[in-house]
Amino acid sequence: MSLPPFQTLVDAHWRDVARLAHALAGPNLGDDVAQQAWAQALAAYPRVTSARNLRGWLLTITHRCAMDAHRAGRRTVAHEDPAALASAPAVPGPVAPDDGLWSRVDALPSRQREAVVLKYVADLDHRAVACALDTTPAMSRRLVSDALAALRVDLEDLR
Protein backbone atom coordinates (compact mmCIF):
# COMPACT_ATOMS: atom_id res chain seq x y z
CA MET A 1 0.00 0.00 0.00
CA SER A 2 1.71 3.15 -1.20
CA LEU A 3 0.42 6.50 0.01
CA PRO A 4 1.79 9.82 -1.21
CA PRO A 5 3.64 11.93 1.39
CA PHE A 6 1.06 13.85 3.43
CA GLN A 7 2.52 17.17 2.29
CA THR A 8 1.31 16.35 -1.24
CA LEU A 9 -2.27 16.27 0.06
CA VAL A 10 -1.85 19.56 1.91
CA ASP A 11 -0.40 21.29 -1.16
CA ALA A 12 -3.06 19.91 -3.52
CA HIS A 13 -6.16 20.25 -1.38
CA TRP A 14 -5.81 22.85 1.38
CA ARG A 15 -7.80 25.44 -0.56
CA ASP A 16 -10.66 23.01 -1.21
CA VAL A 17 -10.76 21.94 2.44
CA ALA A 18 -10.79 25.59 3.53
CA ARG A 19 -13.52 26.46 1.04
CA LEU A 20 -15.72 23.60 2.18
CA ALA A 21 -15.10 24.39 5.86
CA HIS A 22 -16.05 28.02 5.30
CA ALA A 23 -19.12 27.09 3.27
CA LEU A 24 -20.38 24.61 5.88
CA ALA A 25 -19.37 26.34 9.09
CA GLY A 26 -19.32 30.01 8.17
CA PRO A 27 -16.56 32.59 8.35
CA ASN A 28 -16.18 32.46 12.13
CA LEU A 29 -15.72 28.73 12.56
CA GLY A 30 -14.38 27.93 9.08
CA ASP A 31 -10.71 28.28 9.97
CA ASP A 32 -11.02 26.17 13.10
CA VAL A 33 -12.95 23.47 11.26
CA ALA A 34 -10.36 23.28 8.46
CA GLN A 35 -7.52 23.18 10.98
CA GLN A 36 -9.24 20.43 12.95
CA ALA A 37 -9.96 18.43 9.80
CA TRP A 38 -6.27 18.52 8.84
CA ALA A 39 -5.18 17.44 12.31
CA GLN A 40 -7.61 14.51 12.23
CA ALA A 41 -6.56 13.54 8.71
CA LEU A 42 -2.86 13.59 9.66
CA ALA A 43 -3.52 11.39 12.69
CA ALA A 44 -5.55 8.86 10.69
CA TYR A 45 -3.47 8.92 7.49
CA PRO A 46 -1.30 5.79 7.98
CA ARG A 47 -4.49 3.73 8.40
CA VAL A 48 -5.95 4.80 5.04
CA THR A 49 -6.27 1.71 2.87
CA SER A 50 -6.67 3.21 -0.60
CA ALA A 51 -4.93 6.13 -2.24
CA ARG A 52 -7.64 6.41 -4.89
CA ASN A 53 -9.87 9.18 -3.57
CA LEU A 54 -7.88 11.07 -0.97
CA ARG A 55 -9.56 14.37 -1.83
CA GLY A 56 -12.97 12.83 -1.12
CA TRP A 57 -11.60 11.39 2.11
CA LEU A 58 -10.33 14.81 3.21
CA LEU A 59 -13.60 16.53 2.35
CA THR A 60 -15.60 13.89 4.20
CA ILE A 61 -13.49 14.53 7.32
CA THR A 62 -14.00 18.27 6.83
CA HIS A 63 -17.74 17.76 6.60
CA ARG A 64 -17.76 15.71 9.78
CA CYS A 65 -15.73 18.36 11.62
CA ALA A 66 -18.11 21.06 10.42
CA MET A 67 -21.09 19.08 11.68
CA ASP A 68 -19.34 18.53 15.04
CA ALA A 69 -18.58 22.25 15.34
CA HIS A 70 -22.17 22.94 14.47
CA ARG A 71 -23.55 20.68 17.16
CA ALA A 72 -21.09 22.02 19.72
CA GLY A 73 -22.15 25.55 18.78
CA ARG A 74 -25.80 24.74 19.26
CA ARG A 75 -25.14 23.15 22.62
CA THR A 76 -23.36 26.27 23.83
CA VAL A 77 -26.14 28.53 22.66
CA ALA A 78 -28.82 26.30 24.17
CA HIS A 79 -26.98 26.22 27.44
CA GLU A 80 -26.62 29.97 27.68
CA ASP A 81 -30.01 30.95 26.35
CA PRO A 82 -32.59 28.36 25.26
CA ALA A 83 -34.59 31.00 23.42
CA ALA A 84 -31.61 31.81 21.20
CA LEU A 85 -31.60 28.25 19.87
CA ALA A 86 -34.78 28.72 17.89
CA SER A 87 -33.62 31.91 16.24
CA ALA A 88 -29.98 30.95 15.71
CA PRO A 89 -29.21 30.46 12.01
CA ALA A 90 -28.29 26.89 11.23
CA VAL A 91 -25.18 28.05 9.38
CA PRO A 92 -23.73 31.50 9.99
CA GLY A 93 -24.12 33.14 6.62
CA PRO A 94 -20.84 33.50 4.73
CA VAL A 95 -20.28 37.04 3.58
CA ALA A 96 -20.31 36.86 -0.20
CA PRO A 97 -21.53 39.42 -2.73
CA ASP A 98 -23.88 37.05 -4.49
CA ASP A 99 -27.29 38.75 -4.52
CA GLY A 100 -28.48 36.75 -1.57
CA LEU A 101 -27.78 33.30 -2.99
CA TRP A 102 -26.00 32.22 0.17
CA SER A 103 -28.81 33.32 2.42
CA ARG A 104 -31.10 31.16 0.28
CA VAL A 105 -28.74 28.20 0.52
CA ASP A 106 -28.65 28.87 4.24
CA ALA A 107 -32.44 28.68 4.43
CA LEU A 108 -32.61 25.21 2.84
CA PRO A 109 -33.45 22.21 5.03
CA SER A 110 -30.16 21.07 6.57
CA ARG A 111 -29.74 17.81 4.61
CA GLN A 112 -30.40 19.58 1.32
CA ARG A 113 -28.00 22.36 2.24
CA GLU A 114 -25.23 19.93 3.15
CA ALA A 115 -25.78 17.90 0.00
CA VAL A 116 -25.75 20.91 -2.30
CA VAL A 117 -22.64 22.36 -0.66
CA LEU A 118 -20.78 19.05 -0.86
CA LYS A 119 -21.81 18.66 -4.47
CA TYR A 120 -21.01 22.15 -5.75
CA VAL A 121 -18.64 23.80 -3.29
CA ALA A 122 -16.58 20.68 -2.62
CA ASP A 123 -17.25 19.36 -6.13
CA LEU A 124 -17.81 15.82 -4.87
CA ASP A 125 -19.67 13.22 -6.92
CA HIS A 126 -22.87 11.68 -5.60
CA ARG A 127 -21.07 8.64 -4.25
CA ALA A 128 -18.80 10.79 -2.11
CA VAL A 129 -21.65 13.06 -1.02
CA ALA A 130 -23.63 9.96 -0.01
CA CYS A 131 -20.63 8.72 1.93
CA ALA A 132 -20.26 12.03 3.78
CA LEU A 133 -23.97 12.19 4.59
CA ASP A 134 -24.13 8.49 5.44
CA THR A 135 -26.81 7.78 2.85
CA THR A 136 -27.18 6.39 -0.68
CA PRO A 137 -26.09 8.02 -3.96
CA ALA A 138 -29.75 8.01 -5.09
CA MET A 139 -30.70 9.97 -1.97
CA SER A 140 -27.85 12.39 -2.55
CA ARG A 141 -29.09 13.00 -6.08
CA ARG A 142 -32.57 13.56 -4.73
CA LEU A 143 -31.42 16.00 -2.04
CA VAL A 144 -29.36 18.00 -4.49
CA SER A 145 -32.09 18.18 -7.09
CA ASP A 146 -34.69 19.22 -4.48
CA ALA A 147 -32.27 21.88 -3.24
CA LEU A 148 -31.65 23.21 -6.74
CA ALA A 149 -35.38 23.23 -7.46
CA ALA A 150 -36.03 25.23 -4.29
CA LEU A 151 -33.23 27.68 -5.12
CA ARG A 152 -34.50 28.08 -8.66
CA VAL A 153 -37.99 28.95 -7.41
CA ASP A 154 -36.54 31.41 -4.90
CA LEU A 155 -34.40 33.14 -7.46
CA GLU A 156 -37.18 33.31 -10.05
CA ASP A 157 -39.38 35.03 -7.46
CA LEU A 158 -36.83 37.82 -7.46
CA ARG A 159 -37.17 38.58 -11.12
Binding site: V10, A18, A23, G30, A96, Y120
Partner: peptide, 23 residues
Protein backbone atom coordinates in the same frame (compact mmCIF):
# COMPACT_ATOMS: atom_id res chain seq x y z
CA UNK B 1 -22.73 23.47 -13.42
CA UNK B 2 -20.72 25.31 -10.83
CA UNK B 3 -23.01 27.67 -8.97
CA UNK B 4 -20.55 28.62 -6.23
CA UNK B 5 -17.31 28.98 -8.12
CA UNK B 6 -17.01 32.60 -7.11
CA UNK B 7 -17.12 31.75 -3.44
CA UNK B 8 -13.53 32.46 -2.41
CA UNK B 9 -13.19 33.11 1.30
CA UNK B 10 -9.85 34.36 2.61
CA UNK B 11 -8.10 31.20 3.72
CA UNK B 12 -4.64 30.07 4.78
CA UNK B 13 -2.84 26.72 4.75
CA UNK B 14 -3.21 24.58 7.87
CA UNK B 15 -0.67 24.66 10.66
CA UNK B 16 0.13 21.10 11.61
CA UNK B 17 2.03 19.64 14.54
CA UNK B 18 5.48 18.12 14.11
CA UNK B 19 5.03 14.61 12.78
CA UNK B 20 6.90 11.38 11.85
CA UNK B 21 9.06 13.05 9.20
CA UNK B 22 9.84 16.77 8.81
CA UNK B 23 11.68 17.84 5.71
Amino acid sequence: MTLFDDFAPVVRPPELPRTDISY
